[in-house]
Amino acid sequence: MSQPFIEARNIGKQYGQDIILENVTTTVEEGEFITLVGASGCGKSTFLKMILGTEQPSSGELLLNGEPMPNEPGPERGIVFQQYSVFPHMTVLENVVAAKGFQKASLTGYLFGNEKRQARQEAAEMLTQVGLSHALNRYPHELSGGMKQRLAIAQAVICKPRILLLDEPFGALDPGIRADMHRLILDLWRTHKLTIFMVTHDLKEGFYLGTRLWVFDKLRHDPHAPNAYGASITYDLPVDATQDSLYQEIDDQLRPTKSTTMTADLTERQT
């Protein structure tokens, strides 16, 4: 039997008395595109941070190629956060060139001469691929939210990570722009053969983007001590096998209150 790419063995996470995650056991093969959904505070971002290396499991094991996951962020795991992912003091092109420079084991990571020319060209190509070729010399504060995220993605992908982590990357974007971003991320996933983990609030996103959907939720619930039990992966679905009824079921489970208030909102607006 071949070794799984990423393996979680009975992972638990707690902060003091608060248990966030318990009994998370799963395996992931290279090239999968996994979306993580769940109510807020259910531990999906915590799980992402464990892969990233900024959090460590309190119990259990998280393995990458059979080795324990490194306990700090590294170049094999790229990340795009919801915000603050790009360097505000560099232009769009500099942001991506700097990413190339960081790969070099020098004190400052500055590139010179031929190396620099090559990095600039590569960066420009990458930026064309994400649709930012017209904005190479702008600073991030002059970009829209969607353009900033495109830049952050370009930065991450040019370093050729094996795993790309997306922490609600499109949460702050308009629906129309979000559709463009979905196309972009699917495109990059295919061309660069990435393994993607994407945390999202938008269950719909999880249902048609990617190959696999994880729903994080609490299996046991104590109303008097809401933090006594942690969440786990309650649904692990291949995306093409999902149906509308199941979507509705999960949607109701995750946010019964929110969905009713949202419909109330809508009817209110229509009248």
């Binding site: 790229g78 990340i79 990413a99 960081f102 400052t108």
Partner: peptide
């Protein structure tokens, strides 16, 4: 986030100090 991002791009501590 910027410090984590720089590390995922392969940056070392001196590179983060000097460039970021």
């Amino acid at each position: 986030e910027q410090l984590v991002k720089a590390q995922t791009l392969g940056a070392s501590t001196p590179q983060i100090l000097i460039r970021v």
